[in-house]
Amino acid sequence: MIESIGASVRDKASRFLYALAFFGRVVDRSLRFFRRRQVGYKVLVFQILFTGVEALLVNAVMAMAIGAAIIVIGSSLLPQFGQSRLMYDIMVIVITKELGPLLTAFIVIARSGTAIATELAGMVVGHEIEAYISVGVDPVSFLVVPRVIGMVASLALLSIYFNLFGLLGSFLVVQLIKPIAFAEYFQSLLAALAPGDILSGMAKSLVFGVIISTVASYQGFAIGRASTEIPVAGIKAVGQSFVLCIFADVLITLAQYA
């Protein structure tokens, strides 16, 4: 009993250390990525294409739905308290600072986190990683770093689009149900929006991007030899990314308000 606990703790600790080392390597190689133009450039472009461009539609629909809901609820409920201007603050908090980055992260975890984990796991099973090593290509530099950078860039860009669709696209949706004046809406929104809000949303996107891509890559690499482990890598990547993203979100939010 005690031995099994000890063994599992040792196992966990060594895996944690390995994960830390992996992360350190990713950071190191990411910094080098910008210093010289790498062959991984194409992987980066495709990563942004898959993670960013192709997730744009889901992202936009979600943003507009949430934004429209806030406008409709806010414009009918808040005036009862004489606080109709609060609506713009709520929109900025929900869409720009809190929900926007997190929901974008969730979309990306579901789409690209699994994709990265299973793709890399498939490469491990097919000995493709060994093949990269055998020709002198560092798999972290070539495979992980473009994915990390692509993921971070995609999330940052997606969160800009999320804001755009959530704050402005939702306005157009609401026009169909309950018209409100554009100039007044737009100006109030701009007044409610602070640079810190945008910065905070961006910071979250960056952190989430690093978390999702690193976790997914790590889980992809961490499998053994069996092809049955590939979906397991995907599942683990999603689970861990979710938990870590929510954790990071709470930390960043607390850091702002504390």
């Binding site: 097919g126 060994e130 093949a131």
Partner: peptide, 10 residues
């Protein structure tokens, strides 16, 4: 290194 199962980059 020539791999047993090819290990080509798919």
């Amino acid at each position: 290194f020539g791999f047993q199962d090819g290990a080509l980059w798919e």
